[in-house]
Structure formats: structure tokens, C-alpha cells
């Protein structure tokens, strides 16, 4: 799993506002260069673009994969951005949100094909994921991840694939490492659709018990939002904030504080 790259965090809304003219241009360019300029267009909020002279503007779409080449059993994050669309579908996945990410673990090299339809027409985007299949596939992680036998997935496999999300002091913002953990967790959950997940929100021991209970809820919710954006159905996710009532460790130092400022995934049995 170590070849998964962290998707770049979305630019803040302030940056979007500052670069709106530039992004407008880039959005137009993306019509022609659908897959090529995804990184620059990612983060466009369609509603920030303002009204267009055309009553039915042409849709735009981009689709990327990160990484574009994997070994069998590893996971790829698909990331797509569309504008002016009403229906977006990806072959093999089905209808999806206008913008989103999803982790997939194809068993062969695959062309992912996105079709975005809007009032102004339809547009396509493609990305190819190369899967390096060894001559004799190891029966270890690849089997677990691609197997359809979810009922046998134990806590151990879950824990190996799904890591805690850690937060900064007094913050519920997902850091880059938290984004990665969420994407990784989502990949596992997409692979194992029968698993329901419980996200526990935790805080370090400093500050008020009542405030930390609310902050823990925000942290768990940040992880939940990340999972949903990565394609996990909301109905599979349950939140419980434990605030500072269940300390993972008790040393009064930053290492321990950091251990406690987390959202933790467990199988919701």
C-alpha cells in the first residue's frame, strides 16, 4: 500500500477566489485537455464561476488516476472534476457525483472512461491504469483486497489497511497525512462493501471535557466527510465522539497529545 500517493489537498476557498479569472481560463482549457490539466482545475467550485452568457454552457470533465501504474492488489485513486453536468458516469463504477474521488483496485490494466452529460452537451474523459501482474500472483494482500468474500475480513486486515487520522491541536481540519489515511480507509471500504465503519472522535486531555466532546464530533465528522467524498456510502458510517474521556495514552507530552487527537476507524459490528 505504500505506493499510494497523497492527493493534493484542495485549495482553500480564498485561493479559489483570488485565482478565479485564471481558473476560468483553465476551465475552458480543460475542455480540450481533459486529462492533462486536472491538477490546476481541481478545486473549481462550479458555483463560483458565476453566470454564463450561454444559457446552457458546455460541460467539462477531467479524470485522473494516482498512481497510473500499480502492482496487482494495490490501489489507485481516481479523481474527477466536472462542471455544467447533470449526469456523470464512470464505466464499471456507475453514476457518480459531479466531483469526487474513488479508490479502485483493478486486477488488469484498465481504461477508466467517464461520460459527463449536461444541458450543453456531453463530454468524455479517460485515464489508463496499468496493472503490473506478476507471473505468479502472491496469495497475500492482493487476495484479501480483491476478494469478494467480505464476510471473512477480520479486524486484523481492517487494522492493517485502515489507519487512524490525526489532527492538529484544537483543529478538525484533515492534514495531508489525514487525507491519505482517509483515502486509504475509503479504498478498503469500497473493496469491502459489507463492512460498516464506526469513527470515534478523540481529543487530548487538555481543556474542557464538554468542549472536547464537541470537538471530537467535528474530528470524526471530518473523517466521515472524507470517506463519503471518496465514495463510501454515508449509511455505512457511524460517528461517536469520546472527547477526552477515553485517552489512548496518558503522558503529558506532545507525542501522547497527538496520539489522542485522532479519528479512529473500527468495524461497526
Amino acid at each position: 500500500m505504500n505506493s499510494i500517493h497523497t492527493p493534493k489537498p484542495l485549495p482553500s476557498s480564498r485561493m479559489v477566489a483570488l485565482h478565479r479569472p485564471l481558473l476560468l481560463v483553465l476551465a475552458g482549457l480543460s475542455l480540450a485537455l481533459s486529462a492533462g490539466c486536472h491538477k490546476k482545475t481541481s478545486g473549481i467550485d462550479p458555483s463560483s464561476l458565476g453566470p454564463s452568457a450561454n444559457t446552457a454552457p458546455a460541460p467539462t470533465a477531467s479524470l485522473t488516476a494516482d498512481p497510473v501504474a500499480i502492482d496487482l492488489g494495490q490501489t489507485v485513486v481516481l479523481n474527477w472534476r466536472t462542471t455544467n453536468t447533470t449526469v456523470v458516469t464512470i464505466d464499471g463504477i456507475g453514476q457518480v457525483n459531479a466531483n469526487g474521488t474513488q479508490s479502485v483496485s483493478p486486477s488488469n490494466s484498465t481504461n477508466f472512461h467517464l461520460v459527463a452529460k449536461g444541458d450543453g452537451g456531453a463530454v468524455e474523459a479517460n485515464v489508463r491504469v496499468t496493472v503490473r501482474v506478476p507471473e505468479r500472483a502472491p496469495a497475500s494482500t492482493g487476495t484479501v483486497l480483491s476478494s469478494g468474500d467480505q464476510s471473512l475480513v477480520g479486524d486484523q486486515a481492517f487494522k492493517a489497511a485502515v489507519q487512524d487520522v490525526f489532527f492538529d491541536y484544537d483543529s478538525d481540519d484533515l492534514r495531508p497525512d489525514g487525507q491519505q489515511a482517509v483515502v486509504q480507509a475509503a479504498a478498503f471500504l469500497v473493496q469491502h462493501p459489507n463492512i460498516r465503519v464506526l469513527i470515534g472522535g478523540y481529543a487530548d486531555e487538555r481543556g474542557s471535557a464538554e468542549y472536547n466532546l464537541a470537538l471530537g464530533e467535528n474530528r470524526a465528522n471530518a473523517a466521515k466527510t472524507g470517506l463519503i467524498n471518496a465514495g463510501v456510502a454515508p449509511g455505512r458510517i457511524r460517528l461517536i465522539s469520546y472527547g477526552k474521556e477515553k485517552q489512548f495514552c496518558t503522558e503529558a507530552d506532545e507525542t501522547c497529545y497527538q496520539e489522542n487527537r485522532r479519528a479512529q476507524f473500527t468495524i461497526d459490528k
Binding site: 464538554e210 464537541a214 471530537g216 464530533e217 467535528n218 470524526a220 465528522n221 466521515k224 460517528l239 465522539s241
Partner: peptide, 25 residues
């Protein structure tokens, strides 16, 4: 969601509290 920190009105007929039905209290 998390429901916490109840407080009574002085007439005892209502309580105020913190609730997070959508992840934010």
C-alpha cells in the same frame, strides 16, 4: 450525534443542550 451539556430553564419546562445531528454541534 453527540448530545451533551443540558441546562434547565428556571421554570423547569425546557432544557437547552448541545447536539450534533450532522457532525457539528
Amino acid at each position: 450525534g453527540t448530545n451533551e451539556s443540558a441546562a434547565w430553564t428556571p421554570n423547569g419546562r425546557q432544557i437547552a443542550y448541545s447536539a450534533a445531528p450532522n457532525g457539528d454541534s
